[in-house]
Design a protein around this nucleic acid. Structure first.
Lengths: 224, 224
DNA sequence: GAATGTGAAGGTTTTCACAGCA
DNA sequence: TGCTGTGAAAACCTTCACATTC
């Protein structure tokens, strides 16, 4: 949970849904909608209207009774809340399989996450170009992070070395880390660490297919 | 939530944590641990011992009082529960940025998710080889899915075409879909669909860094 | 009339605390 | 004694329902 404005507690789920609202509002804006109701917003993402209203109410009163929410304005407000109204300087460590996919990931760019530096320890990769971004030697980590005013670091290195890398990243003063390695990393109390585990959702599918005949069963009877 | 064994309700979070336990148990097994307590399991992943015990208790009594859980046995039991004790035949649609990263993703292989076929609509890619897997023409989707006994399909195509692709995948009788496109897809009630949204965690970091000085504040006071 | 904003109710998940067993 | 397994309590999250506003 999260305290906001010194008062209200905001759950992780609410923040995740803000991301979703932001995406839908971007689409609605392109489709030239001026306003949108909580009902319509909910329908588009299989949520409930009450949930949408409650989520938004934690941050203020953005709607008009009888009318709904102003699309562009709400989108901008959410961008502000999520911190998407500024460009984030991001560094990527590791241009292996996953790393190179992230470099070209359109969604990051669209949301103002700007990958400015890439690090690797492979001499064959160092100095080369990945979509216009030069690959730096991991040896220069601390100085290059500072030189580029990096605020967020994405770690896409093998699990075996991830902790060492993260230790160095922390030493360089970085406070936000996104980790793709399947390992629980230790960071000091003043560092935000999030993990992205791509096989978790596949495992969930595996569990579901293995144990149930169809999704509705998961809510109801179930089998052994 | 999920009903299991016709009785107990199991939450999505519990299943996600089973994935985590499975990973930790694999490591403990390699480190030659014979048993592990809920306390140690919790410590390694920043959970509580009570949580670990409760999660496991939904599926049976695997531990010994006074001693803990047998590592290898528990690992195997969880594999069974999650359906990881069989090889899953997986197809990947779209070998763009993300798609090509997934082909070589070690974690999938390690957990018995076997990408057998790759589809694309780009003539330059069709026929070529990606890490030993031939890229098929998306036109042959239905027949190739059947010929390879595919059970799970990973969708890694642009958001604009994802719904059309998924419609075809559903028509081919596939019941498990993992979607990487940032869009809410519609599937019939008998199909399991999970979404992987890689920018969501980055947005969460952005929110946290924007609004709080450090993680502990998120649980306590908070600022505006 | 239509749709927000929000206390209160209802439901779910986590934590507590302890009985029970090796 | 040490640690599991589990009802009960606490914390948390979602939904309801309605007063309020445009």
């Amino acid at each position: 949970m999260v305290a906001y404005g010194g008062k209200r507690k905001i759950s992780e789920s609410t923040i995740r849904r803000l991301s979703i609202y932001y995406r839908v509002l971007s689409i609605l804006e392109k489709e030239n909608y001026e306003t949108v109701s909580s009902k319509e917003l909910a329908r588009r993402e299989k949520l409930t209207p009450a949930q949408v209203r409650k989520d938004l109410s934690f941050f203020g009163s953005f709607g008009t009774r009888g009318l709904g929410y102003p699309v562009s304005e709400l989108k901008d407000r959410i961008a502000q809340i999520l911190g998407l109204n500024k460009i984030w300087n991001v560094a990527l460590i590791g241009v292996g399989n996953i790393g190179s996919a992230l470099v070209g990931y359109k969604e990051f760019q669209r949301q103002n996450f700007n990958i400015k530096v890439i690090f690797d320890n492979d001499q064959r990769k160092i100095g080369s170009n990945h979509k216009g971004i030069k690959v730096s030697d991991i040896k220069n980590l601390e100085s290059d992070l500072k030189a580029n005013n990096i605020e967020i670091v994405i770690v896409a290195v093998p699990a075996t070395v991830a902790q060492y890398i993260v230790d160095d990243v922390v030493k360089a003063g970085i406070k936000g880390i996104l980790n793709f390695a399947p390992v629980n990393l230790k960071v000091p109390g003043d560092v935000f660490l999030r993990n992205e585990n791509m096989s978790m959702e596949l495992e969930y599918l595996s569990f579901a297919l293995r144990n149930f005949m169809n999704p509705s069963e998961m809510d109801e009877k179930g089998i052994s």
